[in-house]
């Protein structure tokens, strides 16, 4: 059985419990054990723009906790993945390591840091997921949104293809749903700009919502709580700002996968989705 330390970060356990719930239930269904990290904190990413070293030390502490548990790390948030991966690289740099040690922390063995979805792709595999699917979501048209820090920067991750990402599309297709090819797939949701300039951020989010609307997508699939904040929580704002009506549900990938694995709506926390995915459920049901 695959065992991983699960790093939740700040947003997921408080604001996106449906993401967490569906990820845990999907993991269980696929024979993956997720072990919580006692004492895990914020990943450090919010401090990166202020002081990269502070952010890296906070991140390194979290990896160190997993390392002490002798487990590789999976994360649910793209930004957490990037921040912890950065720190993992730094832990091999002498100067950083000595600062880290001065704080009385230890990093007994090198651990891998990966996004939960990447772990599904690499360790479980498309074939096994396809086999585990009990209820193929055959008629759904999904637009997969990767977010930035899932595969960029490529020299940090060496995973997927930064120009033409495909792993999430494959994972969506494994559930039986159609994954739409569309322009500007790699476009950023705008989440990092939200606190600085809401107008720009909403315009960025609107771009992809508009594409989804024009492509007739039944829903967007996201793998990052920030992206969901932009596409779901701020969808109303985008609609108001651009005078459109979208009403596009935004599902976390484990929610979509969970449904195909036969987990019910409660088991993937559908009631917490702000834009109700009723149309999706209707399509699946018939």
């Amino acid at each position: 059985m695959n065992r991983y330390a699960i790093f939740l970060g700040c947003t997921v356990p408080v604001r996106a419990q449906h993401y967490e719930l569906s990820a845990r239930n999907v993991a269980r269904a696929l024979g993956v054990e997720l072990v919580d990290i006692p004492g895990a904190s914020c990943c450090g990413f919010p401090m990166k723009a202020v002081d990269a070293e502070t952010a890296l030390l906070i991140a390194a502490r979290n990896i160190a906790l997993a390392s002490q548990m002798d487990l590789d790390v999976v994360t649910l948030c793209n930004s957490c993945t990037a921040m912890l991966s950065d720190a993992q690289v730094q832990l091999n740099v002498k100067e950083f390591r000595s600062k880290f040690k001065k704080l009385g922390m230890s990093y007994p063995r090198e651990v891998k840091v990966r996004h939960f979805v990447r772990m599904l792709y690499e360790d479980i595999g498309i074939e096994n997921i396809r086999k585990a699917v009990k209820k193929p979501l055959a008629r759904l048209k999904i637009m997969a949104h990767y977010g930035c820090h899932y595969m960029r920067p490529s020299n940090l991750y060496g995973f997927d293809n930064a120009e033409m990402p495909h792993t999430l599309d494959e994972l969506v297709r494994a559930t039986g749903a159609e994954s739409l090819e569309y322009a500007d797939k790699k476009m950023c949701c705008g989440g990092s700009v939200l606190g600085i300039d809401e107008e720009t951020a909403i315009t960025m989010a609107n771009h992809k919502l508009n594409i989804a609307h024009e492509n007739g997508a039944d829903g967007l699939v996201s793998i990052c709580p920030f992206c969901t904040v932009m596409y779901e929580d701020n969808q109303r704002k985008a609609e108001a700002r651009f005078g459109r009506h979208y009403g596009i549900p935004v599902l976390y990938y484990p929610q979509l996968l969970g449904l195909s694995l036969g987990i019910d709506g409660n088991g993937v926390g559908l009631k917490f989705n702000r834009i109700k995915p009723d149309a999706i459920l209707d399509k699946i049901a018939t």
Partner: peptide, 14 residues
């Protein structure tokens, strides 16, 4: 003020 607009998305890095 625009210095802070970077979303750190790494499109440029690629």
């Amino acid at each position: 003020p625009f210095l802070w607009f970077c979303a750190h998305c790494h499109a440029c890095t690629e």
